[in-house]
């Protein structure tokens, strides 16, 4: 009886989490005529027309390319700087670490609009609107606090004994960081990189402001601005949505353990 209840609960969870996504998947696999059926048909006729149109006519592949470049570059830049900053923070005395981390956490909660105007003018002044770098820079600024917070929480769980031993042996501080600490810290850095990548891939607000040229649009902007003039092409839009989610789904399936450990960094005792 208990097993049955648990099974029903799990099914309900799956339906809740996957339901809307499944409905979009079904829609994306319908032929254009079937999409317009009323009432909607629950089963697709398994045609790939919508995908073909989304990819070819609407240049969706280019948006995926833009997103890959921007999110990839922002991830590398963010994680590199955050790792450097998180190491000394994680080795700081406890009395100091609390307030500093509190500030970092507060910075990660800045609403985008409070910096949007000034950042926009800055980028315009530098001629960086509608360029990849023009989006990479604000993303790095936005993601840094979160990355520092996560990495500091990861790093402070790593034992200090190795570093202390190396110091006794006369290694300089940079040698300790690169030769002793970096190899141990690599998994934490990788985990943080996954999360920063997902957040950058999904970011919409700044992408909307900076990438006004359709050629430069990232995936979220392309999808948000997808609707045609008078009616929404739901089939193509669904196909685009599925394509946008595909890379993330693969990442989630392969890397779920790391994603969860990144999300819960700093919320439970290690």
């Amino acid at each position: 009886m208990r097993g049955l209840g648990k099974g029903v609960a799990v099914l309900a969870v799956l339906l809740f989490c996957l339901g809307p996504a499944l409905w979009i998947l079904v829609t994306s696999l319908k032929s254009p005529g079937l999409v317009d059926d009323r009432p909607p048909s629950l089963l697709p006729d398994l045609q790939l027309d919508s995908y073909r149109i989304a990819l070819a006519r609407r240049g969706f592949l280019r948006s995926i390319g833009n997103s890959l470049v921007v999110a990839g570059a922002a991830t590398v830049l963010t994680v590199a700087m955050a790792s450097l900053a998180a190491y000394p923070l994680s080795r700081m005395r406890r009395g100091w670490r609390g307030p500093v981390l509190g500030l970092v956490l507060a910075a990660s909660m800045f609403p985008q609009i409070s910096i949007a105007g000034a950042v926009y003018r800055m980028l315009m002044g530098m001629g960086l609107l509608n360029t990849h770098i023009g989006l990479v820079l604000p993303y790095t600024g936005l993601m840094l606090p979160l990355a520092i917070w996560m990495l500091t929480s990861f790093f402070s769980r790593l034992p200090r004994e190795l570093e202390e031993a190396a110091m006794v042996d006369g290694c300089g501080p940079w040698t300790i960081v690169w030769r002793i600490f970096a190899p141990v810290a690599a998994p934490a850095v990788f985990t943080t990189a996954i999360l920063v990548f997902i957040y950058s891939w999904n970011e919409f607000f700044f992408a909307l402001l900076v990438m006004t040229d359709p050629v430069m649009q990232t995936v979220p902007v392309a999808i948000a601005k997808f609707p045609g003039q008078y009616r929404v092409p739901w089939g193509e839009l669904s196909a685009a949505a599925i394509l946008a989610v595909l890379p993330l789904t693969v990442m989630v399936l392969l890397l779920q353990r790391r994603i969860v450990s990144g999300l819960t960094a700093g919320t439970t005792k290690g």
Partner: peptide, 8 residues
């Protein structure tokens, strides 16, 4: 999945 999906 819902968390990983772009909000858009």
């Amino acid at each position: 999945l819902p968390w990983a999906v772009p909000t858009v």
